[in-house]
Design a protein around this nucleic acid. Structure first.
Lengths: 270, 270
DNA sequence: GCATTCATTTGCGTATGCATTATGTGCGGC
DNA sequence: GCCGCACATAATGCATACGCAAATGAATGC
C-alpha cells in the first residue's frame, strides 16, 4: 500500500489551481495533420467536450474534468458544490450541472450532503474497463476497416503511429502516451459509429489516470508501438478480420500488463 | 413512408398524461422470483433508475424517460423547459437537470432556444446500436459464464426464458417483449461488470421504441425464444465460448431481422 | 467517562428573478 | 413580389433566496 496517490475518505482542501488557457481548446482536431501536432495532446486539451457554447456550465464541466483527469483533484477527494462554485468564480447552478454530467461520465459520485467525490479507480475497476475496451475496440477496428476509408482519411492514425515511434526513440513516455491516446480515440472516432466511439472515450477517460500512473513504471512500450502499426496496416489493407484480431490481442495484452503493473505496485486505487 | 409514429420537426403540443403510480417502482427486482413477475415488466417500470432519493429532479427524470420510452412523447417533438416544468408541476430547475441527464442517455437533444427534442432513431441509428450490442452482449454472456454462478442466481434468466416460452404459446407479443427485456438486461446485470451492464442498458433504452414498433409486424419470435434458452443452457453448463458465440449469433440475426423490418416498413425514424 | 439526545449549523434541493441573446416578425426598400 | 434589416419577444442560463433535513457539537443523564 505504498505511495497512495490519493486518500479516499478524507476531505481534501487543496485549492483549485487555475487552468492554463489551452484547457478550453476543442478536442485535438484531426485537421491539424502535422506529425508534431500529436505530441501536444495532453488530457486537459481534449477534456473540453465538442464545441459546446461557451456557457458557464460547460466551462465548469471542462475545467473540473480536466482537473480530475490531470489528477489535480485527487481521487477520493470530496468537494462541496459551494466550494467549487467559489473556487471557479461561479454560482452553484452551473457547477451543479457540471457535477451531474461528470457523475454520468463515471468520474465522480455525488453524495447528497458531502458534495462530489472523485471516483477512485480500483484494480477491479480497471478490469471492468479493459473488459469493455476488449470488446468495443476490436469492434471499432473491424468497422473502420469495413468503411474502406482512403489513406488520407486514415492520416491521423498514421501520424499517431509515427509519433509513437518517434517518442519511443526519444524515450519520451509522455509523448508516447499522448500519441497512444490519439490513436485509440482517433480509431474510435473514425469507425463511423458515434455511440461506440462515445463509449470507448468514456471508459478511456475513466482509466486515464491509471495509464498515466503506470507510464513511468513500465518498460518502454516497444511492443505496443509495433502492434499499433500492425493494426493500422491491417486496416489499410482492408482486412477487417485481421484488424479486429490484432486489436483484440493488443488490447488484451496491454490491458493485462497494465493491471498487473497496478496490482504489483500495490496501490489500491487511482 | 407510411404510418410515421412521430413527425420530427414539428412542435408537439400534446399534454403530458399523468403517469400511473407504478412508474416510480424500482427496476424490476430479481428477488421477486415468480414466473409471472416477469410479465408485468413494461418500460415505465424500470425507467425509474436505481433507488435514488425521491427528489423532484429524479422524479422529472423518471417521468420524462418513461414518457419517451412509452412513445408518449413523440420522437422529434420538442418541449420547452418551462412547458415541461408547468406540466410536471415543478420549477424549471429540476426539469433542467432531468433534461441534462436524458441528453447524456442519448434520448433527447437539448437545443439552446428550442428546449429538448426527443431523439428520433433512424435505421442508421439502429445499425449503430446493434453493432454496439453485437459487441457488448456476447462479452457479457462470456463474463457471466465465467462467473460460474449457482443456478439459483441465474433464476431470473431461467424465469425470463420460461416467460418467453409461455408468451409464445399464448401469442402474447407484449409479454414476450417484456420477458426478452428481462432476459437481456438481467444477463447484463448479472455479468458482474457494471460498466458493461450500464452501456448495454443505455443502448437498449435507445432502441426500445424501435423494438416495440416492430413487435406486431414480425412473425412470432420462435427462433429468438429458442436461442435465449440455448444461451442460458450454455451459461449454466459453464461453456463460456459457446455462450458467447450463441449470443453473438442471436444478436446478429435478431438485429438484422429488426433492421430489415424497419427498413422494409418504410419508416424513417422511431 | 461514556452514551444519548437536542439544538445549531450547514449544505442541498428547489423556486424565482434577471439579464442575455437568439428568433421570429413586420416593415421598408429594391 | 421578394429580400434584408431592425426590433420586439421570449426562452434560456445563471445568480440568488429560502426552507428542509442531515450532520455536528454540546450538554445532560447514567
Amino acid at each position: 500500500m505504498a505511495r497512495l496517490p490519493g486518500r479516499p475518505g478524507t476531505r481534501a482542501h487543496e485549492p483549485i489551481p487555475p487552468l492554463p488557457a489551452r484547457a478550453r481548446q476543442p478536442r485535438a482536431s484531426r485537421a491539424a495533420g502535422g506529425q508534431h501536432a500529436v505530441q501536444g495532446a495532453t488530457s486537459s486539451e481534449w477534456a473540453a467536450d465538442a464545441d459546446r457554447p461557451a456557457t458557464a456550465a460547460n466551462l465548469a464541466y471542462a475545467r473540473l474534468k480536466a482537473l480530475i483527469l490531470d489528477n489535480a483533484l485527487a481521487p477520493g477527494s470530496q468537494r462541496l458544490e459551494s466550494e467549487l462554485a467559489a473556487e471557479l468564480g461561479l454560482s452553484r447552478t452551473p457547477v451543479r450541472e457540471a457535477m451531474v454530467r461528470l457523475e454520468q461520465d463515471g468520474l465522480v459520485t455525488i453524495t447528497p450532503r458531502h458534495g462530489m467525490r472523485v471516483t477512485a479507480v480500483t484494480p477491479a475497476d480497471m478490469r471492468e474497463i479493459y473488459e469493455v475496451l476488449n470488446s468495443l475496440e476490436p469492434a471499432a477496428a473491424e468497422l473502420l476497416t469495413r468503411r474502406g476509408l482512403a489513406a488520407k482519411q486514415l492520416a491521423p492514425l498514421a501520424d499517431a503511429c509515427t509519433a509513437m515511434e518517434r517518442a519511443l526513440h526519444k524515450e519520451d513516455r509522455h509523448a508516447w502516451a499522448a500519441a497512444d491516446e490519439v490513436f485509440h480515440l482517433g480509431l474510435a472516432e473514425l469507425c463511423g459509429n458515434r455511440r461506440l466511439a462515445g463509449m470507448i472515450m468514456q471508459v478511456w477517460d475513466q482509466s486515464h489516470r491509471a495509464r498515466m500512473f503506470t507510464l513511468h513504471q513500465r518498460p518502454l512500450p516497444e511492443r505496443s508501438t509495433a502492434e499499433h502499426r500492425a493494426v493500422l496496416q491491417a486496416v489499410m489493407a482492408g482486412d477487417s478480420e485481421s484488424a479486429r484480431e490484432m486489436y483484440r490481442l493488443h488490447r488484451r495484452r496491454s490491458g493485462e500488463e497494465l493491471i498487473a503493473l497496478i496490482e504489483r505496485s500495490g496501490v489500491a486505487w487511482l
